[in-house]
């Protein structure tokens, strides 16, 4: 079975100074949690055949740049949803918009997402989009394998591995540690940026009205954002090396940092 895969990726903001985030390309970077997702899709394509399409919603330059990185990694197609009316979208409005694009794209078997983004960290977009598209959904996926009846999916929980069986179409979020993303070659970068392969779509192209997205289409609104600095305290652990390491282990366990 060949798999046609859509990977949703985001250009994330590196520095934020307040509620009104500036999505300038020089302050943006492809969400690092999306790299293993792209890798997963490319490995599946290599093994089973099919195609990989990267999809991003975002501003023109930063969005296109993230998609070019995906093209440089080896995806076949790149689609950018870009429209002024999308500004201020929360995760619900984002999922509405992504769902509408996905519904417009060619037949697909899998829609893949990162588990979260490094600039907002909600983890909403994957499951919400799956719900809106009425797709079966599994989160934190560690491996995907083809079986006669569909796909066998392993999902990572803290100390457990769950195994599922699904038949496509389905939506998944990919565990960030499931695979080491490939290095991007210079040939890949050169080709991705020289050949204009990013297809841009507007709200009109996907049949949504401005009210369905942006601030009006959002269920939540960010009121304020400020940096909180945590006080750092320095404790000295004394005793022999063994005593010190035992005490350190105990201390880390108590704080829930290690299991």
């Amino acid at each position: 079975m060949k798999l046609n895969i859509i990977v949703c990726i985001k250009s994330t903001v590196l520095h934020a100074s307040g509620v009104n985030i500036i999505r300038a390309p020089e302050l943006s970077e492809l969400n690092p949690f999306d790299l293993p997702v792209l890798e997963t899709a490319l490995l599946l394509k290599k093994k089973l055949g099919g195609s990989v399409t990267a999809l991003s919603m975002g501003p023109q330059e930063a969005g296109a740049s993230a998609l070019c990185e995906a093209l440089a990694m080896g995806v076949d197609k790149a689609v950018l949803l870009c429209d002024k009316a999308l500004a201020g979208s929360d995760t619900l409005a984002t999922s509405t918009a992504l769902g509408a694009v996905i519904a417009k794209l060619d037949q697909f078997d899998l829609v893949l997402f990162g588990t979260r983004t490094c600039d907002s960290d909600t983890g909403h977009v994957g499951p919400q989009t799956a719900t809106l598209l009425d797709l079966p959904f599994i989160s934190n996926v560690n491996s995907i394998e083809q079986i006669d009846t569909g796909l066998r999916i392993e999902r990572m929980l803290d100390e457990y591995m769950e195994t599922y069986e699904i038949s496509p179409p389905a939506a998944l979020t990919i565990h960030p540690n499931s695979v080491q993303p490939r290095d991007i070659s210079l040939m890949g970068i050169q080709e991705a940026f020289e050949k204009d392969k990013v297809k841009t779509m507007s709200l009109a192209d996907i049949g949504l009205s401005p009210e369905q997205v942006g601030e009006t289409g959002s269920g939540t609104k960010v009121l304020s954002m400020k940096q909180v600095s945590r006080k750092r305290i320095c404790d000295f652990i004394e005793g022999t090396v063994e005593q010190q390491s035992d005490e350190l282990l105990e201390c880390l366990k108590k704080k829930g940092i290690i299991g």
Partner: peptide, 14 residues
């Protein structure tokens, strides 16, 4: 021009 700038940025970062 923006595209060239973006390419250099991605290149340097990668």
């Amino acid at each position: 021009d923006n595209k060239i700038t973006e390419k250099k940025r991605v290149l340097r970062r990668r």
